[in-house]
Amino acid sequence: MHQRKIHHTPVALTTLGFGASVIGNLYRVTPPADAAAAVDAAWDAGIRYFDTAPHYGLGLSERRLGAALQGRPRHEYVISSKAGRLLVPNEEPRGADSDGFVVRDDLRRQWDFSRDGILRSIEATLQRTGLDRLDIVYLHDPDDHWRQAADEAMPTLAALRDQGVIDAIGAGMNQSAMLARFLRETPADVVMLAGRYTLLDQSALDDVLPAAAQHGKSVVAVGVFNSGLLSRDRPTEGMKYDYQDAPPELLTRALAIADVCAAHGTTLPAAAIRCAPCSPNSTGCA
């Protein structure tokens, strides 16, 4: 599979990546065998970029991805995870996570973009995955934490990058405006743009992509199915858009795009995947 480099770093990503939120039991239980088979299928298809996060299933995604990649040549794949949400003991568990993942809530998420929090998060990720290093670390959803993320967390990641501990740093969010600020105002190499450059939403054309082009940085476009609405040939009611049930007007738009795809001999999911990597300064999609 073709690869694209993250500008000014040694990291090259396959144009398609594997987003590991689902193997963290996003919305529903994914049996262990199915999670392992999904990673195997991605590998067999030539995918060599795998992304995870502590947030996904309260660490379940990281554990499963690390186990599935165990034994594969480490130099052949790129793995990214995220920091900013520490997993700490939950003093008042109710039996089930309330953040969209079907897992027990023996742990809870704790926002922390301090230097110590970032270092602790990375160390915990390495323990859960069984890896000795991460290729990319993104700050995860710092929407309400700009000052600490920009002034403390990003310099911490930059120091680790400069020491050769990690190869590339950035931020990942479901909005574009703050990601553009990370590109313009911090030492980020790359941003993970979730859902804002898709068939249904190209808002990143106004800020993230121009910022990346101006500063010679890179963009990884993810969430290209907008949480599921674009993942089937014919979308139906109840499918997700931005992690919520898709409103009727967006379902109507998706169905109209599906009709155009069918008229041209392709499918809505195929068009959704092709949309992101064709964007300027994009390294690929997951």
Rank of each mutant, 00 (worst) to 15 (best):
H2F: 12
K5D: 12
I6A: 04
H8P: 07
V11Y: 04
A12L: 09
T15S: 13
G19T: 08
A20K: 02
I23W: 03
A33P: 08
A36L: 12
A36G: 11
A42C: 12
Y49A: 03
F50R: 07
T52L: 10
P54T: 03
H55Y: 14
G57W: 00
L58F: 05
E62M: 09
E62C: 03
E62A: 07
R64M: 14
A67M: 12
L69S: 08
H75F: 05
E76Q: 11
S81C: 08
K82N: 02
A83T: 03
G84M: 01
G84T: 00
R85F: 10
R94W: 01
D97C: 12
D97N: 12
D99Y: 14
V103L: 04
R104Q: 10
D105A: 01
G117D: 06
L126G: 02
T129W: 02
V137T: 07
Y138W: 13
H140D: 04
D141S: 09
D144P: 00
R147C: 10
Q148C: 07
E152G: 08
P155F: 05
G164V: 02
D167V: 01
N174A: 13
N174H: 09
Q175G: 14
S176Q: 12
M178L: 14
A180R: 00
R184P: 00
T186N: 12
A188Y: 02
V191Y: 10
G195H: 03
R196T: 07
Y197D: 02
Q202H: 07
D206M: 08
V208H: 04
A211M: 07
A213K: 15
Q214H: 13
H215P: 10
A221W: 00
V222R: 05
G223E: 04
L229H: 01
G238W: 09
M239N: 07
K240R: 15
Y243C: 08
P247R: 06
P247N: 05
A254M: 04
A256H: 07
D259H: 05
C261W: 10
T266E: 12
C275S: 12
A276T: 12
P280S: 09
G284D: 06
G284L: 06
A286Q: 08
